[in-house]
Every structure is written in C-alpha cells, then in structure tokens.
Design a protein around this nucleic acid. Structure first.
Lengths: 109, 109
DNA sequence: ACACATACTATTTGCCATACAGTATGCAAA
DNA sequence: TTTGCATACTGTATGGCAAATAGTATGTGT
C-alpha cells in the first residue's frame, strides 16, 4: 500500500461517522433514496448508492426512520423520514458533534 | 439492542475518524503512550489503551510516525513522534477535516 | 497493600466501500 | 419504429478494517 492509498483511507475514516448524522438531518424532510443522495451531493457530501441504501436500511431497523413505498410521477419510490426517536437521537448527536468539533479543533491548534 | 445502545454506538462512530487526526496532531510533539493518552484526555478526548496502542502501531506501520524505546526517570518507555510523511498527511487531513466540518454544519442547519 | 504508571494483545462486532445486479422511463437516432 | 443510450431508481454480497471490550503483565512510589 502506498502513502497515497493510506491517506485516502484515513480521509474516508474521517467522513465515516458523519454520514449517519448527515442522513438523519436531511431526512427531517421526506426524501426518496435518489433525491436524498442528490441533495446531500448538492450540499457537498458525496455518498455512493451502495453506501446509502444499506445505511438507511440500518437506520430504519434501529427505529430511527420510517419508510414507505409510494407512487410519484408515474414511478414507485421508497420515501424515508426520521421517526420521533430519530429526531431525538439527531438532536443528541448534533450536540455530540459540536463537542467533537470543539475538542478536535482544540487539539489541532 | 435498545435505543440507548444504538445511540451510544452512533456516538462512537462519530468519534471514530477523529481519533487518527487527534493522535497525529498531538504527536507533533514527542510523547510516550501513557502521556499521549493523558494529554488527549486533558484536552477532552478520552481514548482507551486498547484503542490507542493498536492505533499508533498502525500509524507507525504506515510510516506516519516513528517510535523509539528510551529510558526516562528510571523507566523504559516507547516514544512516538510524527514522521515527515505524517506531518504532510496531517496537514492534508486537517484541510479535509475543515471541509467535512463545513459540509456537515451546512446540512445540519 | 495499594494505587498509579506503563505497555501490550485477542476477540468480537459492526460498518463502509466496492462491485455487482437489476427495473423502468424518456428520448434521439437509425 | 425499434434500437440504443442516458438517467432515474433500488437494491445485495462480501471483504477488509478498525474500535471497543476485556483482558495480561510489570514496575514504582507511599
């Protein structure tokens, strides 16, 4: 493994925990998979389908969001939205995030 | 698994990628394992030994830091410090971090 | 004796990325 | 008009890696 590959891997690790939080936050408003992905991309977060779908699946299994098949524009799509528990979890995680942010920035100085 | 356990796990995920960056940053100055851990703790980042030691071992294997056994205060300790490559990687990752920070905060609003 | 200092490892668990694998719709060119 | 291509849209399998957990072990000062 080259240095560059190592670096890329570390960079991925950095994104990792953030994904869940981003998805939860974005799903305060209802989205289907594709639009969720596009929205996150527009805000600067690229996430592959093969990463996103298992992720929402996991979050749903944990009760943090709900999903429903519906037809829209002649197409069946699966719509996701945070549950109440998901909303609470999001709020707590947001606080945790700000703490992590502070701590790391303190260390980086 | 209960909701609380899920939450705790997510919180851990959030810390995850940050650890490497924190360790690299802290090792701009030389430390041995124990003092490294104490230092990070003092700055608000708790990290278990069982996490820290494999981590530094990994970073060393990747060439991001060097280590050396030395005696100090009648005790042999293993001292760690970032290498040149580690320093460069740290700088790049720091930029990446700030970008992640921006992106996530944008999504959270 | 006890607490603290110091270092290290094995196992378990879970997740992300990668790659693979589709269906359906609209539109343009042939 | 049908072939083909783009893009919308949704998933699954697996492999490798990493953090947490729960240990082992020795030394030192009080």
């Amino acid at each position: 493994m080259t240095e560059i590959e190592h670096y890329q891997k570390l960079k991925l690790e950095l994104r990792r925990g953030v994904l869940i939080l981003a998805v939860l936050a974005e799903l305060r408003e209802e989205h289907y998979g594709y639009s969720l992905r596009k929205n996150l991309l527009a805000k600067g977060l690229e996430i592959d389908e093969g990463t996103l779908y298992p992720l929402v699946r996991r979050l749903e299994k944990q009760g943090l969001l709900t999903s429903e098949w519906r037809e829209e524009s002649n197409r069946k799509k699966r719509f996701y939205k945070v549950s109440e528990i998901g909303q609470l979890t999001l709020e707590k995680l947001t606080q945790d995030w700000h703490q992590v942010e502070e701590t790391l920035n303190r260390i980086l100085n």
